[in-house]
Design a protein around this nucleic acid. Structure first.
Length: 285
DNA sequence: CTCCAGGTTCCGG
DNA sequence: CCGGAACATGGA
């Protein structure tokens, strides 16, 4: 493995913000940059101003993964123009939604249910180390995310030993459905957003929220709007202040309409901003 | 010790 | 369709 790094242009990009905002969980800081896998490609990434250094030979792969082609300014212009949204967008300048591999993204979010971000990262690392194909960048060991077939061959207790808790059964069942061909992620990639969401929800441990995360972070559906506890809190306090008893169904309809074609970006900005400005947030306003 | 975390599923109104 | 409860684990 060569040590040589190549430069790629990365305007309007914040690598640390992008990797640390809770959309992807396996990258770790290393020296002046970050170390992780882009599918089966080991990658060290380091930002220097508007330039991104990545291993020679995977420039195209890295540029695609980090979504350097997303027109951030144009997308932001479509967001609703209100104080909360603007504050979040200001705080998240350069945050891009990376293009994660389908399975890795879906599986990770199945394991994310009712878990804090650091816990999700820990689970991801354990699964990779124990069941993923080993790789390396220089002398640093890395691991691919385990294929569906690799997880499908395990027993539930093996996954519980990775601190998955009750999510073990869901990940195992879903891995078996995918490995057995009962559900095809490639086929889902060709469906429209609505149909794709329904198809994903046939899988164990996949409801509206996890399906939306998979669509947004894995299938490039930038209108997908995952509603988790943070976003629900924001929607209720900012957009439904003083309304009593708003159903989650109502929240879904509202956000799909209100945040538009790039709602997923708006969602991630609101999510990250809330998480960093009001940790353990509960105080409404 | 209690509370909560990027939820889903199942079960009665 | 809606509200509750169960489901594991670890950190604050």
């Amino acid at each position: 493995m060569s040590r040589a790094l190549a430069e790629i242009a990365a305007p309007e990009f914040d690598l640390a913000l992008t990797l640390g905002c809770g959309q992807v969980f396996h990258w770790r800081q290393h020296g002046a940059g970050w170390l992780g896998m882009i599918g089966d490609a080991p990658c060290y990434a380091e930002q220097r101003g508007t330039t991104l250094l990545v291993p020679h030979g995977i420039e195209k792969i890295a540029a695609h993964y980090f979504a350097l082609d997303h027109p951030l300014e144009e997308m932001r212009a479509t967001f609703p123009d209100d104080p909360a949204m603007n504050a979040a967008a200001d705080a998240c300048s350069g945050l891009r939604l990376v293009r994660q591999p389908h399975w890795e993204c879906l599986a990770t979010f199945i394991t994310s249910a009712q878990k804090a971000v650091p816990h999700i990262a820990q689970i991801s690392h354990t699964l990779r180390e124990r069941y993923g194909r080993p790789a390396a960048w220089n002398d640093e060991r890395l691991f691919e995310y385990p294929e569906p077939a690799a997880l499908a061959a395990l027993e539930e207790k093996d996954l519980r030993a990775c601190a998955l808790g009750y999510r073990a059964k869901n990940l195992l069942r879903t891995a078996r459905m995918i490995a057995g061909g009962e559900v095809s992620l490639e086929a889902i990639a060709r469906l429209g957003d609505g149909e794709a969401a329904l198809e994903l929800q046939r899988l164990a441990g996949v409801g509206p929220k996890v399906a939306a995360c998979a669509l947004l972070f894995g299938f490039g559906r930038l209108a997908a709007f995952p509603i988790d506890v943070w976003i629900e809190r924001i929607l209720r306090t900012i957009y439904f202040a003083k309304r009593r008893r708003v159903t989650t169904q109502r929240l879904r309809e509202f956000s799909a309409r209100h945040f538009g074609a790039f709602g997923g970006y708006a969602q991630q900005y609101l999510f990250h901003h809330a998480r960093t400005t009001m940790p353990r947030g509960n105080k409404s306003k």
